[in-house]
Design a protein around this nucleic acid. Sequence first.
DNA 1: ACTGAAATGGCGCGACC
DNA 2: GGTCGCGCCATTTCAGT
Lengths: 162, 162
Amino acid sequence: MTFKPVTLDEASLRILDALQQDATLSNAELAERVGLSASPCWRRVAELKQSGVLRGAVSLVDPLKLGLAVNVFVHVTLKQQDKASLEVFTQAISQRPEVMECYLMSGEADFMLRVVVEDLIQYQTLLVDCLTQIPGVASIRSSFALSQVKYTTALPTGHLRG
Amino acid sequence: MTFKPVTLDEASLRILDALQQDATLSNAELAERVGLSASPCWRRVAELKQSGVLRGAVSLVDPLKLGLAVNVFVHVTLKQQDKASLEVFTQAISQRPEVMECYLMSGEADFMLRVVVEDLIQYQTLLVDCLTQIPGVASIRSSFALSQVKYTTALPTGHLRG
DNA sequence: ACTGAAATGGCGCGACC
DNA sequence: GGTCGCGCCATTTCAGT
């Protein structure tokens, strides 16, 4: 299980902050930025990786440059909430590349997805070819985003300091 | 404006796919993976960067390892939807590190946020100290995620191929 | 546990085919 | 788009404090 938190001192938190902003930093630059010298900095990064705090690094792409202008939030309810139904839905959703995020929700809707598509036509295709085909789906409600005001991958670390 | 899409051939799409999965790939590894040799591969990456398709690279951190177990979706409506009100809200939200995403929505709610926090106490703090303090906010509705079923930063590229 | 030096080896990056 | 190769610099180890 990946569930146990970790104790992190100030230096490690600084490292996480810096790397969440820019993963291309060389170890030398990173060390300078967090106020360590190269070796201990490198050691901490290695520890953070192997403890699973740092999960890897990814490049970020501008969705508009790919023509992906539309974010759709999809609220899905299932006919039954038993484990098997959830599993089926989860599996079906996970392999769809348009589905960026999926959450199991409390309250009325069972799942909420963020889907990114070029246009409404393409969303309709996803809807009829995929979502409505998944067994156990009772209802689907879609909300459309007009624009993305903020999007970050950098988790807050303030709660772990004073 | 960062709005104009770009024409991308198969090799560039392969590069984007690879880098969206793993930004730590060296140019040599990347070249091999996409079936190019090093120089042309490097040239393409440079072009993708300067055309703004590649926006940079970030490290991803496991939220549970930081004790950030709760995702909250917050639906906010404003008293008026004029430009000034939107601007005020946008500004206030942008600097809060707990706010991971914010979208301007069509339909009933004006904004939708994804907020990540340790627990409900911390969410309550954000609510009363920040969200309800923003001038022009008419109503706030919160939905809680029980778990994150899928989360990816990798945009789909399939729509740009055949 | 951090520092600094030092060696090695990979790779960025240009010139040229 | 591919090949070659120089030279830089980041990574990694080791000894020292």
